[in-house]
C-alpha cells in the first residue's frame, strides 16, 4: 500500500479517536448536568433535564448529525464539521449516560445520606463527599458500554464527509478495489480500539472499587450488560 494511502488511515484513525475522546468528555458533562438535574428539588430543572434525555434518546444520532451540519448553518451558525460531529455525538451519548448517573445516584443506600445529615454536612457536601464518590464507582461499568456505543457511532461522521477511520477505508476501497479485505480490516481495527478502551475502563473500574475497599475479579472480556 502506498504511503499516501497509509497517511489517510493515520489521519482517519486520529480523527476517530479525537471524536471518541472529546465526545466522551463533553458527553460526561451533559450526563452529569442532566442526570443530577433529574433529582433536583426544582421542578423546572427536573423538567429541562427530562426533556433533554427523552428527546436525545429518541433522536437517531445520524439525523442529529445532519441537523447540526446542514440545518444549523442556515440559521447563521457555521460550525467546524469536526466540532459539529463531537457535539452531535456528545448530545446523544450524554442523554444515555444521564440515565446511568441518575440510576447510580439513586442506588446509593439512603443511610449514607442520613449519616451525612447527622454529621450536619451542607447539601453540596453531601453530594460531593458522600453520594458522588460512591455513585461514580457504580457508573463506570455502564459508562464502558456507553463509551463503546460512542466509538461505534463515530463512524457515522463518514457519511457527512468527515475523514474518520471509516471514511479513510472508503477512500482505500475506491482506489484499490479490495472491498472485502478493506472492510474486514476496518472491523478488526474498530474491534482492537474497543478492546483497548474496554481494558482501560476495566483498570479504572478496579481502581475505583479499591477506593471503596472492594476488589473486582479480573477478566479480559469484562464488558457485560448490567442486569437491571
Amino acid at each position: 500500500m502506498s504511503s499516501g494511502l497509509m497517511s489517510f488511515i493515520w489521519e482517519g484513525l486520529a480523527n476517530t479517536l479525537l471524536l471518541t475522546v472529546f465526545g466522551a468528555l463533553l458527553g460526561l458533562v451533559f450526563a452529569f448536568i442532566a442526570g443530577l438535574g433529574r433529582s433536583s428539588e426544582r421542578k423546572w430543572v427536573r423538567g429541562i433535564a427530562m426533556v433533554y434525555t427523552e428527546v436525545f434518546r429518541g433522536f437517531p444520532s445520524l439525523v442529529l448529525l445532519f441537523v447540526l451540519i446542514f440545518i444549523i448553518p442556515t440559521f447563521g451558525f457555521q460550525l467546524n464539521p469536526l466540532i459539529a460531529g463531537i457535539l452531535a455525538l456528545a448530545l446523544n451519548i450524554g442523554a444515555y449516560a444521564a440515565e446511568v448517573v441518575r440510576g447510580a445516584v439513586k442506588a446509593v443506600p439512603p443511610g449514607q445520606l442520613e449519616a451525612a445529615i447527622a454529621l450536619n454536612f451542607t447539601p453540596v457536601q453531601r453530594l460531593r463527599k458522600v453520594i458522588l464518590p460512591q455513585a461514580v464507582v457504580a457508573m463506570i461499568p455502564p459508562f464502558t458500554n456507553n463509551l463503546i456505543e460512542l466509538l461505534k457511532a463515530t463512524s457515522l461522521v463518514s457519511l457527512v464527509y468527515i475523514s474518520d477511520f471509516t471514511f479513510a477505508a472508503q477512500l482505500i476501497r475506491a482506489s484499490t478495489g479490495e472491498t472485502a479485505l478493506v472492510f474486514f480490516g476496518l472491523l478488526v481495527g474498530y474491534g482492537i480500539i474497543a478492546l483497548v478502551f474496554t481494558t482501560a475502563m476495566k483498570l479504572l473500574e478496579r481502581m475505583a472499587a479499591r477506593s471503596l475497599g472492594r476488589t473486582v475479579p479480573s477478566g479480559l472480556f469484562g464488558r457485560k450488560e448490567v442486569a437491571a
Binding site: F183, Y190, L195
Partner: peptide, 19 residues
C-alpha cells in the same frame, strides 16, 4: 458476539452490502 457488538453497524452494513 463481542466482536460484532464492539464494531460499528455502519461498517457491518458496508461489509455485507459489498461482500
Amino acid at each position: 458476539v463481542e466482536f460484532i457488538r464492539s464494531t460499528p453497524l455502519l461498517v457491518q452494513l458496508f461489509f455485507f452490502f459489498y461482500v
